[in-house]
Write a protein that binds this DNA or RNA. Sequence first.
DNA 1: TCAATAATTAGAATGACTCTAATAAATCTC
DNA 2: GAGATTTATTAGAGTCATTCTAATTATTGA
Lengths: 139, 139
Amino acid sequence: MNHTRPYSASLDRLRPAGLRPTRQRLALARLLFETGDRHVTAEQLHGEARDAGIRVSVATVYNTLHQFTEAGLLREVVVDPGRAYFDTNTSEHHHFYTEETGALEDIPGDRVVLALMPNTPLGTVIDRVDVILRLKTDS
Amino acid sequence: MNHTRPYSASLDRLRPAGLRPTRQRLALARLLFETGDRHVTAEQLHGEARDAGIRVSVATVYNTLHQFTEAGLLREVVVDPGRAYFDTNTSEHHHFYTEETGALEDIPGDRVVLALMPNTPLGTVIDRVDVILRLKTDS
DNA sequence: TCAATAATTAGAATGACTCTAATAAATCTC
DNA sequence: GAGATTTATTAGAGTCATTCTAATTATTGA
Ligand SMILES: [Mn+2]
Ligand SMILES: [Mn+2]
Ligand SMILES: [Zn+2]
Ligand SMILES: [Zn+2]
């Protein structure tokens, strides 16, 4: 079914962002958004594309991840110095991160409540609040 | 005064960590700990050492930062993918980070209260809680 | 003082990411 | 739809922070 518009969901994401629906962007969008919420690195996504028979360069994977992030389709999660994770869940939520394994897992926004927000330095305003619960395997 | 033991404070930090008090480690410890709480990158610290006339290699700066971190004298702050910050303030506290400027500033632990800690995944335990308030300059 | 151990070093290597400038694809105009 | 215009993709080189290697040097403790 829906044989004539196999990419329509992805198309509808790209159009409002002013991004031309190229073969590469459509394919990456499907990998990213058609399997529920996920966290990926550029290297992982490039590997998945290759495995799926999609030819796309690393440069394009990086370009696309950044463009999607600017368009609000993705969000970047900073947990490891030296490696960027991209998150398909753009709703307010936080993260568990296990350094040993690299596992990154969501914490729903309503499971963490922050109180007593401090005043921000002069001339600045809060852009985002990141809460990372760093885990270790128990001994 | 105290002319005969100019490095005693730093010495006392290294000894319990089982780190030999070498010229390089003592000098870096002074740069790190004798000017109040601070956040530094390896590159910054290496530059300060050079400016102070201390000859020390980048490799040693990295080694020392990691050894001090393992010894609990420093703590690593992850705010930027691609650059590691080291924090001389090891007490419980959180951070403001302004990506535009790279400014990293402390928030005292008691100014942020976290409630409703979620259950951790099986086999893991919370090692640390990082709260980062990401700032932007206001428009 | 000497042997044993640990630390430092220069420079090469790595890994993630970005840039360049040439090619190709998508869109716009008619 | 053809051609012009704009935007995207690409291979490969370049960058930057960080780590590794293996040779030299310093510290320790007998
Ligand atoms: Mn890492
Ligand atoms: Mn950055
Ligand atoms: Zn997430
Ligand atoms: Zn701090």
